[in-house]
Amino acid sequence: MTSLPHDQQADDPQAKAHLQRYLQSARDALLWKLEGLSEYDLRRPLTPTGTNLLGLVKHVAGTEAGYFGLVFGRPFPEELPWMEEDAEANADMWARPDESREDIVALYRRVWQHSDATIEELGLGAKGAVPWWHPERREVTLEQILVHMIAEAHRHAGHADIVRELIDGSAGMKQGNENLPSTEGSWWQSHYDRLEAAAKEAGQG
């Protein structure tokens, strides 16, 4: 019995739902890290390369718009000049003073809707092409791009977790499930001191 090519096979709805759930959990985590912060704290560069919370959201929004849009011939309908080839280096990784939190969050949510429509309408085996990838691996499937964007979004959600902790000490995996020991602040200081002592001991050989 001859099987159909992968892009013509019926989807496993549960498999697609699992992938979409993991993508959505990263989206939600990124936005949760913005809650309760001032405009200044949202934009503060907290690493030598300038990593900041609002810039992470702007970057992931632009990246997702490209992967679920142009890659499958369904371009996101809004212009994102910071994602163009001639854009200033790192233009997608920070927010200008005239770009508000509300603007960037609303854009990200519109990107979700566009992406989710692509995911809903195409099969996991649907073919696309990533023009900014090397020609030898440019051809992709929707399933591959879902996995890629899950990895991308969760990577940056991890960055956001560290940046938020540096701002005000808030940490955790997601709202309602911090995935951290339930302890008092004094325990964390003791834990920190213990790790610092261990690092020094190891460094001294």
Rank of each mutant, 00 (worst) to 15 (best):
E84D: 15
G73W: 05
V57W: 07
E102M: 05
A126Y: 03
R101Y: 13
G69Q: 11
A17K: 09
A61M: 00
G125Y: 00
G123D: 10
V57C: 02
P5W: 13
A91P: 11
I145L: 09
G169W: 05
T118F: 10
E79G: 07
L46W: 01
I119A: 06
E64W: 08
V57I: 13
G185Q: 13
L30R: 02
E178F: 06
L180K: 02
V111S: 06
H148L: 15
Q189G: 01
E35Q: 15
G62N: 05
G66W: 01
R43K: 12
V147H: 12
E64G: 07
G205Y: 07
N90A: 03
A87G: 03
Q9Y: 09
L19E: 09
L42H: 05
E121D: 06
F76N: 08
E64H: 10
E201Q: 14
L124V: 04
H156A: 02
P97V: 11
V140H: 03
W32C: 05
A61L: 01
P181Y: 12
E88C: 00
A89C: 00
E121I: 00
H159G: 03
G73Y: 05
H156E: 03
R138M: 10
Q8F: 13
T49S: 12
R138C: 03
R21N: 13
L195F: 11
T47I: 07
E152I: 04
I167H: 05
E136G: 12
H6M: 08
T141L: 13
Y67A: 00
A95I: 02
R44G: 00
D98R: 07
I150M: 12
S38K: 05
S100V: 03
P97R: 11
S100Q: 06
A89V: 11
